[in-house]
Design a protein around this nucleic acid. Structure first.
Lengths: 216, 216
DNA sequence: ATTTGATATGACCAACTGGTCATGTCGCAG
DNA sequence: CTGCGACATGACCAGTTGGTCATATCAAAT
């Protein structure tokens, strides 16, 4: 993360032009992924010349990096807000609110979420490893802090493996958001573009299962 | 799934040549995804001429479709085998054995698994929706049958939402396999290429959490 | 009025893509 | 020996890609 991905020229630009370029770039990367993203299309959508793009950024990787860092900032910001605003509640209430906040984020920033999904399994994306590690670290710190606090308050069943609990929460939450965002990923919940009220009910059912378990 | 993806010419070929071509194709698609896969590279690896490839298959989509159907067959075969071989056991034993079988499959067929992951979030892959639906249907039927049987035997806590249980299992299992196969996806379990014994322990911890829940 | 430096531009480039096709090889039937 | 049909081949095509660069524009400073 050491190099500056955007040239100074870009920062001197009028704000609305910067916005147009960033917007076009996020659109392009979010719905095409890194490699299929076309800079020709990008400049066309942004309404600038090809040469201009290369006055703003050193190359395709630079644009991508810039976009990704902006996106990561928004995620971090949201996580912090949710964590702080539920600090004194019970673990399972916190989990419920966290998942709701996740769904809200994904509805408000569908392109950011789509970008994240695209990156996840394409080993050829530059900096993928670095970026994925950053995202997972945030998630880990988030759930880790919820779990530690819950344990301190005696809300957790004794003898539970903390790494296992963390893995479980991360897995279920991530998949829930995926199912809301992506069609055909979800066997029975039919979460994709489901009405608000259904989503809320499913969230409660899931948290209940996590709390009480499957066994009789 | 109506059209025949491979030409008759291909089926007339000596078995070892067929193998070479299919092998090269699976390699290429598995580590490049659909769009980045290059037919020039593919023919080079397979040791055949470009023109020959087009005597075997109608186009890139045809090759892809053929490969995918073969892969899907292997998955189906494995699922059926595991289901039958554990038919009379307790739900949580079945789950443990299923997850172990999943890990084994992924170690034996890493390219098939990689292909599946690549397809998952790339909306531009042809037939993606059709193929994803097929995979999820298999998973749904599998877990659905385990859960129904468990309920009939009274192994499930009463009042549990079956769709929620199914979603939970599908989510956790899928993510577990992903974490074993892909680096940096997993916050604390460090499953990627972990030694057998660690993986086994993690499986038991997870199943325990699923069975008994998180709450005190 | 002239110079200067920052910014804008799109024709251009080599490299590659999926796909085609005229030509060739070769075993076998007549 | 001839001819035929199945299969093999790689030069070739139009289209697209990321990236470059000589040239143009234009406001501010002199």
């Amino acid at each position: 993360m050491s190099q500056q991905p955007a040239r100074t020229t870009f920062s001197h630009l009028p704000a609305d032009k910067q916005e147009r370029v960033l917007n076009a770039a996020l659109n392009e990367f979010a719905d095409q992924g890194y490699h299929q993203a076309s800079l020709n299309r990008l400049v066309a959508r942004a309404g600038i010349a090809k040469g201009s793009l290369y006055q703003y950024f050193p190359n395709k990787e630079g644009i991508f990096r810039h976009i990704f860092q902006l996106a990561l900032g928004r995620v971090r910001q949201t996580l912090v807000a949710v964590k702080d605003s539920t600090e004194n509640e019970n673990l399972f209430i916190r989990l419920e609110k966290s998942l709701k906040a996740g769904v809200r984020f994904l509805q408000e920033h569908p392109r950011i979420y789509s970008l994240y999904l695209k990156i996840q399994f394409d080993r050829q994306v530059p900096f993928r490893q670095e970026f994925l590690a950053a995202v997972r670290r945030h998630a880990g710190e988030y759930f880790g802090s919820l779990i530690s606090r819950a344990r301190a308050r005696g809300e957790l069943r004794p003898g539970i493996s903390e790494p296992a609990a963390l893995f479980l929460l991360d897995a279920v939450f991530d998949r829930f958001l995926q199912a809301v965002a992506v069609p055909y990923l979800d066997v029975t919940f039919n979460l994709h573009q489901a009405p608000e009220e259904i989503v809320q009910r499913r969230i409660r059912e899931l948290i209940d299962l996590l709390r009480e378990g499957l066994a009789a």
